[in-house]
Each structure stands twice: as C-alpha cells, then as structure tokens.
Design a protein around this nucleic acid. Structure first.
Lengths: 233, 233
DNA sequence: TAGTGGTCTAGACCACAGA
DNA sequence: CTGTGGTCTAGACCACTAA
C-alpha cells in the first residue's frame, strides 16, 4: 500500500518483519536485544525500540524485560474496525443518505436495556427508533435507548431531522463503550422495515457507551439483509 | 482498568483527554502546539508528541503539519478485534475443546472461492471441513479451502488430529489478510452440525490470507446459534 | 516561506523479572 | 544482582502544508 519513502524506524520494522516472515527468526526464538540491533542497523536504540514496540503491539513479537524479545508463537491477529457515523458510511459509498424517524417517546425499557444500564425495572427512558436508507433502500434500523436521567438535554430534542446517532456522537462525550456483534432472525416488524422476509438472517451491532460508571445510551443497529462488515488483518 | 502509576507521557495523554472530555477543548478547536504544551507540562516535546500521537491514532485528535492539532469533529470510533485461535478462544472460557474432521479432499472449488483466489474455474484445491466443539457442544464449523499450488506442503497433511486452522497459523507466514463478517440462514447441513434448526440466523466470519498477491487460504467460520463477538471501544 | 508536527540522536535513569 | 526493555531529555534537522 504505502509507496512512500520509509522513515528510519519503519525501515527497521520492515527489516525485522522480513526476518520473521522469511523464518530467519523463527516463532518462539529470541532476537538480539535492542542495543545490539541498534548497532547492527546503525541507529539509536530508541529507533529500534519504536520499531519493536510497534511490532509487539501488532502481536508479532513478545517482549519482556530481562527475558528479551521473542517472535510470537501464536500471532494473535488483530483487526481494527472503523466505526463511522452511519451517514458517513453511506455517503462514502456514494449513495444518497436519508433518515426516517419512526418513533420517539419516553417509556419503560425492556429487561435487556435495564440490565445493560443497571437501572431499576420501571425507570422511564428515552426511546428512539429510526430507519437509515441508502439510495432509498433500507440500510439499517436504529433502535436506541437514552439515559435521560444522566442526559437531561435529550428531553428537549426532536430527532426528526438529525439522527440520535449523529447528535449523540457529536454532542455527548463518553469515556468508553462496548460492542457486541451477532446474527438474528428478522422479526415481522424488522422484516417490514428492511424490506425482507420474516426470519431472514440479519447482522446486528449492539453498542453501549459510558461516562465512567454511568451508561449513557445503548443502541441496536439491525442491518439490511446482505450487509457485510469488512476489515483488514 | 489500569491501576498502575502513569508514565509521564500517559499522564500528559490523560490530561489532554480530560480537557477534551470536559469540553475545555471543544470538537474542532485547535489546541496549543507541542512546544507550548511541553513548557506547560514541564516535559520534553517528544513526551507531548508521544501522547498526542497516541490520541490521534485513537481518533480523538486530528493532526496536520503547519495547521496544528485539533480535537476531532467526528470521533471515528475504532474497535480492535482480537482474532485468536479457535482452540484458545474456547479454552479461555474454561471449556473442553474438541476437534472433529468432517471432510478432507482435493476438489474443484465453488465460484466464490475461485473469485477470492483469482484462479481459473477448474483448478483443484484442498478442501477441509471440520467442527470445533466446546464442552461437547458444537461451537463453529470451519469450511476451508487451501491453495495447494502455493502450499504444496499441505498435500501430505492429515488434519484429523491438528486442525487446519492451527497448522496454518503456526506454520504458514502471511503478509496480510481480509475479513468479512455477516449473518446467514443455516442450511440443513449447517443446522445439523451445529445442533440447531434450518434457517436459524448464524454468525459467520470469512477470512482470506495472502502472501503478497497470492491467496493462501480462505475459510468460512460459521458459529453456533447465539454466538456473539464482543469488543471494547 | 514560515510554522507545525515527525523523526532522530546520545546519553541517562528507572522498573521489572530472570538467574 | 543484573540484563533487558521502558521512558525521558535537550537539541537538532527534516517534511509537509497553510498562508
């Protein structure tokens, strides 16, 4: 991919990668320490350090103080998922994005939401259901619950022109989140919204975001039939 | 999570994160340059650089030479997926891992495989189907095709005691890979192997690994009903 | 062209964990 | 105790790009 001139530490990284890849350094084997490599490559130790740290964070090396650096035995592959705004994702594929609000009200939440939020059973939460379309075809259903105790601002919002997805991401800072991916059989309602048949296998992403120990919002994104999520290794 | 004493650059990072999170520095806004921050924090510029680079790689900052550093407008969330060996994944949940070879033969590949490999239609490829179980319950079907032109070693392998998954990962180096996640309705055969019903929504991961421009192997992993993939944000 | 981030260096000290 | 990686510093030069 990158057709640029390599910086020094990238060159060191590339050379180390090459030695691992060609099995000059085999899985499980110790490689020379940073100081020796710095001498061999004729650079500062920090430069070697940066290269090896990067490789270690990619899972290609195991590093321990005193024990030294070894080629990883089980290269735990790491894939990085980009999770963009739905609107951006659709616009990136050069399709026309549209947004349709289906429901916005305050109501008691179902069990799975209360479980996620760690709230009592009959707390009222802000509930939004919306459909995002690409070129006027259903793309994803956004079924969102918002903790309006922690986020009182939401009570005055109308999500008919801006999606809750977008408003939250731009306006509400969070400290961390968790994500679950799963497959589910379409309910009758989901099938109707997504223009497919009941029981069709659909891809779902469930995301909850937190401000420290307080859950702010949880959303289930149910994608149209045939949706695929891609990434590189 | 981390209850350790922070290193200096981590402290700087934490402070910058705090300012972003508390909106002292708002989305889109420029923050002071590295030199000024180094003075303010009483540390070397490199230390600030490391902190800001880390935040930028997490998507929280946008950095451009001359233009300076700004708080990201659209915090593109990045989630890192760990893709371990199936055996490790099962053992990590303290269940008993077992492996059952269902098929191993050389045959002409279906279209989707030829498409991935960029090969002619009637090339013969190495085909393996296996079931991985956790506590004797079906966990995932591994349906794998191996490019035995590029990987002649595979012709002498018997995958009845070691899985192709494991052998390939430990023995065959690759330069990169791509991954697709999707949902599918169980076929009759899949339902039977996974002890569920036809048309049940199942989670599938399709992974292809490459040595430069040569596809080495492609695999479809179809998980048991109810499987979820988790990650943090 | 000038300001900003990106990288590099030599040297230093520290923290951890193996022997 | 000692070898190794982890981090920090001050200073320098380079590379990109907005003005």
């Amino acid at each position: 991919m990158t057709r640029h001139s390599l910086t020094n530490w990238q060159a060191v990284m590339a050379e180390v990668e090459r030695r691992i890849y060609t099995r000059e350094w085999k899985p499980g084997q110790s490689i020379p320490n940073e100081a020796d490599l710095a001498i061999e490559f004729g650079c500062a130790r920090v430069t070697v350090n940066r290269a090896l740290q990067t490789l270690a964070s990619n899972g290609l090396l195991d590093r321990r103080r005193k024990a030294g650096t070894r080629v990883a035995l089980h290269p735990i592959s790491k894939a990085t998922l980009q999770i963009p705004l739905i609107r951006k994702e659709i616009e990136a594929s050069k399709k026309v994005y549209r947004y349709h609000l289906k429901l916005q009200q305050i109501e008691a939440a179902p069990d799975w939401v209360n479980a996620r939020f760690g709230l009592a059973k009959d707390v009222l939460l802000f509930h939004v259901i919306a459909l995002h379309t690409a070129d006027n075809k259903p793309y994803v259903i956004e079924d969102r619950w918002i903790n309006c105790i922690a986020l009182a601002e939401v009570l005055s919002m109308r999500f008919d022109s801006i999606s809750a997805n977008e408003w939250l991401l731009q306006s509400i800072p969070y400290t961390h989140g968790d994500i679950v991916f799963r497959a589910l059989n379409a309910s009758i309602e989901q099938a109707e919204l997504l223009d497919t048949k009941e029981n069709k296998a659909l891809f779902e992403i469930e995301r909850t975001t937190w401000d420290h120990d307080t859950a702010l919002t949880t959303v289930r994104l149910v994608f149209h039939a045939g949706y695929q999520m891609n990434t590189a290794l």
